[in-house]
């Protein structure tokens, strides 16, 4: 028996919106410690790593480990049927063919059940080693989303250069070029508005806009985003999900031939 309940479906709705552009299907691995998803986009350029800890759920029970292949499009449609304040419960038997989503209104007067067929999937897992990054930047997630959107108008790629002075985003294309510099904030009274840079060595990396613009769909999950970068390795873009877990996106850089 697997059962996981969240008091408000809003978190799960936001998580689905944050992955649906990148993934068509994914395996949800459920164990005593929680729910984990690791899945690459079809082009194998980016990877989504989602972790929801069991202690972050209002109720969590997982009698034996389950790997459930889910169609992300269908799951997104089902979650859109829930109101943000509805309680959501995920339920499956031990060797499931289906998973059931149960939405209950706050006043308990409406109860909706949606059953979704599971799919058989080959589990592809990337071994990602613990990495010390040359630059780790924390910045407001809305600012990052804004910069990705604005610079995407100028080119297909954004170059991120990080030094002690700050972080610079730039894009160049046929119509011109653009760059946005953010300095490290002097006083971080408001934690959510802070730009913090932890730099060992300066880095300069180039990434495809279309993936960055998919990652920023996670913006409603967290006020801050963490970008971890080292030369010639994938970017890690991380959003905390309240007290329950995190979503990390990995993105392979574009490298000069």
């Amino acid at each position: 028996m697997f059962e996981a309940r969240l008091a408000q479906s809003a978190i799960l709705k936001k998580v689905l919106e944050a992955v649906k552009d990148l993934l068509t299907e994914a395996t949800f691995e459920c164990s005593d410690s929680g729910i984990q998803v690791q899945a690459m986009d079809n082009a194998h350029v980016s990877l989504v790593s989602l972790n929801l800890r069991s202690d972050g759920f209002d109720k969590y029970r997982c009698d034996r480990n389950l790997s459930m292949g889910m169609n992300i499009g269908t799951m997104t449609k089902i979650l859109r049927c829930a109101s943000s304040e509805d309680t959501v419960t995920l339920r499956a038997v031990d060797s499931p063919d289906n998973i059931i989503f149960i939405f209950e209104s706050q006043n308990k007067e409406k109860l909706a059940e949606y059953e979704m067929k599971l799919i058989n999937m080959d589990l592809e897992h990337l071994g990602i080693p613990e990495t010390m990054y040359s630059c780790v930047v924390k910045m407001p997630s809305q600012e990052f989303a804004r910069i990705c959107r604005d610079l995407s108008q100028f080119g297909e790629a954004i170059t991120i250069a990080c030094s002690k002075e700050g972080i610079k985003f730039s894009a160049a294309g046929d119509y011109g070029n653009a760059n946005v510099k953010l300095a490290q904030t002097a006083d971080s009274d408001k934690e959510e508005e802070a730009v913090l840079i932890d730099m060992q060595e300066p880095v300069k990396l180039t990434f495809a806009c279309r993936y960055l613009n998919s990652f920023v769909k996670a913006t409603p999950l967290c006020a801050q985003v963490k970008l971890s970068m080292s030369s010639d390795v994938p970017l890690v873009c991380e959003y905390q999900i309240g007290e329950i877990g995190h979503i990390r996106y990995y993105l392979a850089p574009k490298i000069d031939d």
Partner: peptide, 14 residues
């Protein structure tokens, strides 16, 4: 122009 790399060039597929 820079070339888009594949993630599997950086991490092993298990």
């Amino acid at each position: 122009t820079p070339v888009q790399n594949d993630l599997t060039e950086f991490y092993n597929l298990a």
